[in-house]
């Protein structure tokens, strides 16, 4: 008890010291619906958030040196669904988008991303991710949070997108329809985001026989030690936030009707990706 308390206090002080004025002020400015113990209903903890802000801020500013365009499209309040392309074997695109929404606009915005349902079975990740505002990706959770006017980040390509090999970089996979149903049901505006750079953070080939053997969706191998994607390369990230798109219609419509709306979002992201790739001079700077 004594040792853990002491460690906790030390860590807390260290975090406070390193946060800096800007990030520190942003953590305090965040709208937070916590209880008397400093936790909200989804397990987000104010003290844990400071640690996350510190780590993610460093990754965002120094490791990936991220450049964000179209910050004015991040709404300062109210429900919003961020839809982005997913890539790069490791989910750093989520970290970077979350950091951008927290660090760049005049008012910090907490973005919750939807994590896979196996995450609650993994020790430490099971509680650390919720403490940092991430939630288990079920439609019920998303619906509830949008109705509570929160900001949600979703990758409609899901695992198909993130595990795609290097040879198919910047080609979008099939978009799921779930996000559109949720947006229609809650009348939530969609802000499309194009992520440039994540595709090169872990250029991988997929070893299909090994994946089949292990029963995993893919088995990526990267051309640098330790040969499995654990650390991303320090590529430069570029984010493009698009104008909010509003859709109307019945959330229970046939797939074909929704497909059309989803295609509109996908096209918008595609054209932003093309623009970003044209503007980019180099992968690493």
């Amino acid at each position: 008890m004594g040792v853990t308390d002491w460690l906790r206090r030390r860590l807390d002080n260290a975090v406070e010291d390193r946060l800096g004025d800007d990030v520190g002020a942003r953590t305090r400015a965040l709208v937070f619906r916590g209880n008397e113990y400093g936790y909200d209903a989804y397990g987000l903890g104010r003290d844990h958030l400071k640690v996350a802000a510190l780590l993610a801020g460093w990754v965002y500013r120094h490791y990936f040196r991220c450049e964000a365009h179209g910050i004015e499209h991040i709404p300062p309040a109210g429900r919003v669904l961020f839809i982005a392309n997913h890539s790069g074997q490791l989910p750093f695109d989520g970290v970077v988008i979350g950091s951008a929404c927290f660090l760049e606009p005049p008012v910090p915005r907490l973005v919750r991303s939807m994590v896979e349902t196996f995450v609650p079975t993994v020790p430490f990740a099971s509680y650390l991710l919720p403490r940092w505002g991430q939630i288990t990706g079920t439609p019920e959770n998303c619906l509830r949070l949008l109705e509570e006017d929160e900001a949600i980040l979703a990758f409609p390509e899901g695992a198909r997108g993130i595990s795609k090999p290097f040879s198919r970089r910047y080609q979008l996979e099939h978009f799921g329809l779930g996000f559109m149903r949720l947006a229609l049901a809650t009348r939530t505006p969609i802000v499309p985001i194009a992520v440039i750079g994540a595709e090169e953070q872990a250029p991988a080939v997929n070893v299909k026989p090994l994946a089949r053997l292990l029963g995993a969706p893919s088995f990526p191998i990267v051309p640098y030690p330790p040969f499995i994607p654990l650390l991303p390369l320090p590529v430069k990230y570029r984010l493009y936030f698009g104008e909010a798109m509003t859709f109307t219609g019945d959330s229970d419509d046939e797939d074909e009707v929704l497909e059309e709306k989803v295609r509109a979002v996908k096209h918008r992201i595609e054209s932003m990706i093309h623009l970003g790739l044209r503007e980019r001079k180099h992968v690493f700077w």
């Binding site: 609650p120 079975t121 019920e140 509830r144």
Partner: peptide, 8 residues
């Protein structure tokens, strides 16, 4: 593990 945060 796949429970939503709040079950109705």
């Amino acid at each position: 593990p796949e429970n939503p945060q709040f079950l109705t």
